[in-house]
Amino acid sequence: METSGKVLTIDHEKCTGCRLCELVCAVKHDGVSNPMRSRIRVMKWEAEGLYIPMSCQQCEDAPCLKACPVKAISRNASFERVEIDYDLCIGCRTCVSVCPFGAMSFNPVEKKVFKCDLCDGDPQCVRFCEVKAVDYVDAADVSLKKKKAAAHRISVAGKEAASLHAAL
């Protein structure tokens, strides 16, 4: 198998809170600027400078897919994503209620639910995020970067402890 499929990863510590991802997502999908239409949204706690981008996790065992009363939501293996068939969708918003991440949104203008479709393999949020708070990586490597960062922290802590010990 050539790839194990790619997934969208979010490292909120890197997020600068600029919301360019929201802008390009709405432009790419709907041709307009409007964060309400974005599939990815940056949740903010400005008073403490905390910014967390939220998007669809493309769950393996997706609650939205299970809950859909008309089976309009399915898994697309070639893009490793959960997608909506608008010919079947009745706009009941059950999927919005059950999604544990708030990643299924509702567009009150077109009266449609919508979610991340990974831009068919070229997610624009990732393309425009220079700090790579949002990234698109091989599923098999999803935790490698975190492992390395954690390992580095342990090593630094170890060195500090050693120097403390030496100073005592």
Binding site: K14, T16, G17, C18, L20, L23, V131
Partner: peptide, 20 residues
């Protein structure tokens, strides 16, 4: 006081010139 990623930006700007 904040951490290694302590720069923030204005709307849709990738320069992120503001420190926290």
């Amino acid at each position: 006081t904040i951490g290694p990623h302590h720069m923030t930006g204005c709307f849709a700007c990738q320069v992120h010139c503001r420190a926290q």
